[in-house]
C-alpha cells in the first residue's frame, strides 16, 4: 500500500500541467471581516484566486486559516465585505449558498465520512440527491474516483473498517464525485499517522496536476514547495505575507513569518 505512494511522491512533479488562468477568477474576497461575538477573527481579508491556482495557507494555530476557508463555502458566516465564488456572491440567501456548495468540495481534518453508509453510498449520496444523477451513473462515477484514489476494493465496506489514510482518500473522492470547480482542504493530513500522510498527499498532487483550483490549510511545507503556486501566511486573523513558495521559504520578509518558519523548518 504505502510503497506505491512513497515511490510516487518522490517522482518528478509535472508542474507544466498546473496552469493558472489569467482571466478566470475562481474566488474573490473583498474587505472581509468576521467576528465571533466580540472577537475579531478575520480582519480585512482581500484575496483573489484565479482558476487553477494551488494556494497553501499556513500560520500558527488560532490564526484564522481554517475559519477563512470555511467562509468560502459558508460553513462560517462573514459579517462584512464580499465573498464571490465562481461569480456567485455569498449572502444569507440559502439558494446561493447551496449553489456555491455544489461547486466547492471540502476535505476535513477528521474526514467526516458518514459512518452508517458504505463507502459507495458515501460517494453517491450527494450526486443522487443534490444533482439528481441516476443511481447507476452515480455509482459508475464513484467507482472511477475510488480507482483514482486506489481503493476500489473497499467500496462495500463501512468507513469504520478503513485506516485513516484510506478514509481521507475516500473523503477526497466523495468531494470529487460532485465534480467541483474548487477544492478546499482543511488540514487534511493533521489527523493521520505519519505513514499515511504520503498516500493522501499523493492524491492531492494528482488533483493539482489535473488543474484543480485548490486552497489548502496545511502544515506540509514539502507539499507547499512542490505543488503550491502561492503561499499565504496568516496570523491574528490577517494575511501577513504571501509569495511564491520558493521566495516565501528562502526569503521571508515579515518578522512573524521568519519566526514561524524557523520553528517548523529544521
Amino acid at each position: 500500500m504505502s510503497d506505491v505512494s512513497v515511490a510516487k511522491v518522490d517522482r518528478e512533479i509535472v508542474r507544466e500541467k498546473m496552469t493558472v488562468s489569467q482571466t478566470e477568477v475562481a474566488i474573490e474576497i473583498i474587505g472581509m471581516n468576521k467576528w465571533y461575538a466580540d472577537f475579531h477573527v478575520l480582519r480585512d481579508i482581500n484575496l483573489k484566486v484565479m482558476k487553477g491556482e494551488r494556494i497553501v495557507i499556513a500560520g500558527p494555530s488560532g490564526s484564522g486559516k481554517s475559519t477563512l476557508i470555511r467562509c468560502i463555502n459558508r460553513l462560517e458566516e462573514h459579517q462584512q465585505g464580499q465573498i464571490i465564488v465562481n461569480g456567485t456572491e455569498l449572502t444569507s440567501d440559502l439558494r446561493r449558498v447551496d449553489e456555491v456548495r455544489r461547486e466547492v468540495g471540502m476535505v476535513f481534518q477528521h474526514f467526516n465520512l458518514f459512518p452508517h453508509l458504505t463507502i459507495l453510498q458515501n460517494l453517491t449520496l450527494a450526486p443522487i440527491w443534490v444533482r439528481g444523477t441516476p443511481k447507476a451513473e452515480a455509482e459508475e462515477t464513484a467507482m472511477k474516483y475510488l480507482n483514482r484514489v486506489r481503493i476500489p476494493e473497499q467500496a462495500l465496506k463501512f468507513p469504520g473498517q478503513l485506516s485513516g489514510g484510506q478514509q481521507q482518500r475516500v473523503a477526497i473522492a466523495r468531494s470529487l464525485c460532485m465534480n467541483p470547480e474548487i477544492m478546499l482542504f482543511d488540514e487534511p493530513t493533521s489527523a493521520l499517522d505519519p505513514e499515511m500522510v504520503k498516500e493522501v498527499l499523493e492524491v492531492m498532487i494528482n488533483l493539482a496536476e489535473e488543474g484543480m483550483t485548490m486552497l489548502c490549510v496545511t502544515h506540509e511545507m514539502g507539499f507547499a514547495r512542490q505543488v503550491a503556486n502561492r503561499v499565504i501566511f496568516m496570523d491574528q486573523g490577517q494575511i501577513i505575507e504571501q509569495n511564491e513558495p520558493e521566495a516565501f521559504f528562502s526569503n521571508p520578509q515579515h518578522e512573524r513569518t521568519k519566526l514561524f518558519l524557523s520553528q517548523i523548518l529544521h
Binding site: N73, L75, D98, R101, N112, L125, A126, W129, V130
Partner: peptide, 23 residues
C-alpha cells in the same frame, strides 16, 4: 452526532431536510 457530520453534509450541498433524513 458530531458537528462534523452536519458540516460534511452541508459542504456537499445537502439542504436541511436531506441531511436530516439521510445523515
Amino acid at each position: 452526532i458530531g458537528r462534523g457530520q452536519y458540516e460534511a453534509a452541508s459542504a456537499l450541498g445537502l439542504g436541511y431536510w436531506k441531511s436530516t433524513a439521510f445523515i
